[in-house]
Nucleic acid binder design. Structure first.
Lengths: 364, 364
DNA sequence: GTGAAAGCGCTAACAG
DNA sequence: CTGTTAGCGCTTTCAC
């Protein structure tokens, strides 16, 4: 917009000196100047020196738009995550940003809010920006219009968190949702719990929640216990207390809750407290995700820990490998990457209360 | 990379049909086809119709790179935030994304981690992408190399959270940090507290923390109380318990803590609990930020609530106004926007304990 | 090693 | 209203 000061008097309207100006100042051709930055090996050292000097003297700043357009590849990765409000994805973003920028790639972030309509819009937005590929997390990979579209158009992408099925052709980086959930529930069982209820958010919409529920079933059955149906809590607000109360006042009240994500778990712990229960003395709570916040709380949140930052970084890594394979087809090997998970069994998990189940207090 | 199917047999190597193809198919000139999308009013309806049809038939997807390069304005906003790991900025991002995309602008997000060196790199990155302007939060606006650079280059930008001084030429959107902090501390005083300590993270590095501390001093002095020096906790980990213990074991132990941000407050509450104190029965804690998580906890986090999402949206709004003013100079009026704050005085705040100060338990 | 020239896809004068 | 034309800044054959 505003004109800029030109030391040599040659005023330019636009946004600063271009490669042409640099070439001129260094008394080389445009082509050579370009090569100094793109293919340094192709140019004599002394020449490169002159060009660099000229560039520095003129405060030359390469216009990425030009190179991206011309090169027909933007070195940009589109990222679509459900929301930044869940720390899981915020932590993941850190990994994505580090990995991408380190590799000289640029990023374009959009959030979908788990809304299929917005997913389509945002993906279209990314496509118009001509991203070379995408890293994304969708609500349910198995029935995702947007993924189908990407497949049809041959756009390289890798899923983060969504765990592609063994027979899927899709690429994904995640933990073993089912297996890790099973591990978590087994820890609960090992602590002495028998009546364990799974709490989930929008259960039907989330493939991960379903996979984790399956893991819960595995663990229960492996120990001769009968799985309960999932308790689906639509929101993360305190209004969930009512549904929780119904659970804990039942005769066969659960002694432990397994929440399919940490945010939910934190809310459940608070609700339980409001209902007069102590966590973990009266009731245990296990989360899933391993967000940093969980370690800060008191009691610390017991949870299945995913390597969130690493999931992001690895997803970028896989995508880059694909992009650089340049065969147009993704490397066949290892479509689905399963990262190791960990268990944090502490704080919000304890043995179930002895013979006497404490009477929940009525809230005032 | 991969070739795409062309219905009419004219195979194209690149990434799909271009405007030229559409123009051809619609039997109009390239210029007309372009106008249909950029200046619909300039073209006859029937013609526009033909073009739209052709575009749809060919699955035409405009290449934003082309228009951005040619138009010499990218309609892109660069966003630099300290981190997504703090919910404050995640909430802010929501506002930014909504406002920008609604206005037809694209975004490019980077995080600085409060690191000045990274700030420079990331800003350079944004500049190379030729963003039209920026929305950013820096550690300390008063001594920010990156802001000075932006000023020198005449890049339009508006600060979010950083509150530009009255005599500054900079644009900012924030709450009144000092005044709102004062309000919060007065609520503490109104609840009966006299000995109040301010807890902060990297205090010297954050202009907001300093402003909020000043607000604390205002409140204390207004009530004839003597402000304590700030208790600076470098990290958000549990190791802070030691410093907190020193505070609460002192003879004139504070009855309330004012934390300069919510994340810190949550950590402090946990640490206090670990030290055997009940919040708010034994000690009160006031936060600052108003992140959603605070309402989920038990007890709910008392805090000074900023309109985080709105701060982001308004910052974009101000930047857009600036960009559209097109005079090259920012609209002189209202450089600094102060958004209203709110107080959430509940949960973690109560009257100080009666005559007897509870003895903190030693941790096992 | 280096230079000349041809565009990437699109917009914006300028004519008609 | 519509078409012709000239690039935006950069990379990349193709010669030399």
């Amino acid at each position: 917009m505003t004109g800029r000061h030109m030391p040599d008097g040659k005023a330019k309207a636009g946004s600063g000196p271009t490669l042409v100006d640099v070439a001129q100042a260094a008394r080389v051709s445009l082509a050579t100047a370009s090569r100094v930055f793109s293919h340094p090996a192709m140019v004599r050292d002394s020449t490169a020196q002159r060009v660099h000097e000229a560039a520095r003297r003129l405060d030359f700043r390469p216009n990425l738009l030009g190179s991206k357009l011309r090169a027909q590849q933007t070195r940009m990765i589109g990222v679509m995550l459900p929301t930044m409000d869940n720390a899981v994805f915020a932590e993941c973003w850190r990994g994505i940003e580090e990995a991408a920028l380190a590799a000289g790639y640029s990023l374009m972030l959009v959030t979908s809010g788990y809304d299929p309509k917005r997913e389509r819009e945002r993906v279209e937005y990314l496509l118009r920006h001509r991203v070379d590929g995408m890293v994304l997390t969708v609500a349910d990979a198995a029935r995702s219009a947007v993924l189908d579209q990407l497949d049809a158009e041959g756009v390289p992408y890798v899923l983060a968190y969504n765990q592609a099925g063994a027979r899927s052709r899709r690429h994904s980086v995640s933990v073993d949702n089912r297996g890790s959930a099973c591990d978590g529930v087994e820890a609960l069982i090992a602590a002495g719990h028998r009546r364990i209820v799974v709490v989930s958010g929008a259960f039907v919409a989330s493939d991960r929640a379903r996979q984790r529920y399956a893991g819960y079933q595995d663990a229960m059955r492996a120990h001769g216990l009968v799985p309960s149906p999932v308790l689906s809590l639509p929101s993360h607000t305190a209004s969930n207390a009512a549904q929780l109360r119904a659970q804990i006042e039942a005769d066969d009240a659960p002694t432990a809750f397994f929440c399919t994500n940490d945010l939910l778990a934190i809310g459940v712990i608070s609700d339980l407290r409001r209902l007069g229960l102590r966590v973990p003395a009266d009731v245990s709570v296990l989360g899933y995700d391993g967000i940093a916040l969980g370690t800060v709380m008191e009691p610390a949140l017991a949870t299945v820990v995913q390597p969130n930052t690493d999931i992001g970084a690895r997803a970028v890594g896989r995508l880059l490998a694909w992009l650089h394979a340049a065969t147009g087809e993704a490397p066949a090997a290892a479509r689905v990457t399963l990262l190791p998970h960990a268990l944090r069994v502490s704080g919000s998990i304890a043995a179930p209360p002895g013979g006497i189940r404490p009477r929940p207090l009525r809230s005032p």
